[in-house]
Write a protein that binds this DNA or RNA. Structure first.
Lengths: 213, 213
DNA sequence: TAGATTGTTAATCGATTAACAATC
DNA sequence: TAGATTGTTAATCGATTAACAATC
């Protein structure tokens, strides 16, 4: 086998947009054999120039005068994002939000499979969410070898999130999606994405407050 | 009354961080009369220089040698974000995600009040979520004057989101938080924030795929 | 005064945009 | 060939960082 040249890192802003392109491409895949950067832009809310610039980081992907092969491009983006076999995900916190995420229809189609749910509240442990029995959080560390999950979602109250993150990292998890509104402290080897729902509304509130009238 | 000078627009990146600072400040407010940019940075995962730069856009807010008054700064940020009276929010889509958002404990504390929920599915209409009766989506336009909501959350399947957005905009809503994984097309007078849960996981997948070993 | 910490400046960095030569 | 559309370049823009004078 030939020596593989490691792909250069993609710009962060590009990485953040590739999933959107991918979703759009999968959506139109069966209807459209090729698609132009302008159409991708229209479908994803990005300028055509931006789309081409982003895709140029993946190598030559289109054909001048024609556009991009929808299927080939979708596959290339999926590969670039590290999506292949479904990736196992554990959810910590089986309250309203955790349960909603466990039932979320958008994950399976897009490369993820919820394989375990955890909670500390004895009223929730043993309950069922989307076909999974909620397990006690203490079991997570040991489970991490049996249930294979590479990503964990924290859907606990803010006060519990850091302790949960510490256990996750100690259990070998290197990717965390955090819904608790606190900054997690983790080492540089851990990727953390933060989604703060109230923050999103507050950003909207700011723009609203600046509208004249 | 003196003529008011309109505040200059804040940089987008600053606006996105102010809610985090605000949350942290409210958290420590009762314990700490003053706080330094370094402590704010530690508590929110931002560098101290970045914190100072962000706060400098709000005017002179601290005292050299001392730091910032926790309470005054929190109040100033809240005001800068346009948070005063609780802001009414309507949720469209009363499925798992919509219901979880309706029950989300993090909204009331941070300036928002869910005032109405809508769905198109007759099995959900009439049901109750967090003390609110789910109303038919057709009623929204007329409701918009009675129930006062300035922000709408779209928690419908992707296929319905654009039509929902169109009705919202026609009803006078200018701020939309969209959980459906599609780019909404709206005029420039409408602020849209997009939260795509599967996208977040895909970004984590990318970083994970680049870790050696 | 000495120590602490802000507010601001200048330098750097990364992202976006616009234009267009290359080429299907 | 003419028209379409990519891939790339250079210019611009906005955000971050580091350093430090101001000042409590």
């Amino acid at each position: 086998m030939a020596a593989t040249i490691p792909n250069p890192a993609l710009p962060n802003a590009t990485v953040a947009r590739l999933p959107r392109y991918l979703r759009f491409l999968e959506d139109i895949r069966s209807r459209r054999p090729t698609v132009s950067s302008e159409e991708i832009g229209l479908g994803t809310g990005v300028t055509a120039a931006q789309v081409r610039k982003d895709l140029s980081h993946l190598g030559p992907t289109g054909t001048r005068g024609i556009g991009y092969s929808t299927g080939l491009l979708a596959d290339l983006i999926a590969r670039s994002l590290g999506l292949g076999e479904p990736i196992g995900v554990a959810i910590v916190g089986a309250g309203n939000l955790g349960a909603a995420l466990g039932n979320y229809k958008g994950f399976p189609d897009r490369g993820f499979r919820i394989v375990a749910m955890y909670d500390n509240d004895s009223r929730r442990v043993g309950g069922e969410v989307s076909g999974l029995v909620v397990r006690p959080f203490e079991a997570l560390s040991e489970d991490a070898s049996r249930y294979v999950f590479a990503i964990a979602i924290i859907a606990t109250p803010a006060g519990a999130a850091q302790a949960v993150a510490d256990v996750l990292v100690a259990s070998g998890i290197r990717s965390i999606l955090n819904f608790a509104p606190v900054a997690l402290r983790t080492g540089p080897e851990v990727s953390v994405r933060q989604v703060d729902l109230a923050t999103e509304l507050q950003i909207l509130a700011y723009h609203r407050s600046r509208i004249p009238g």
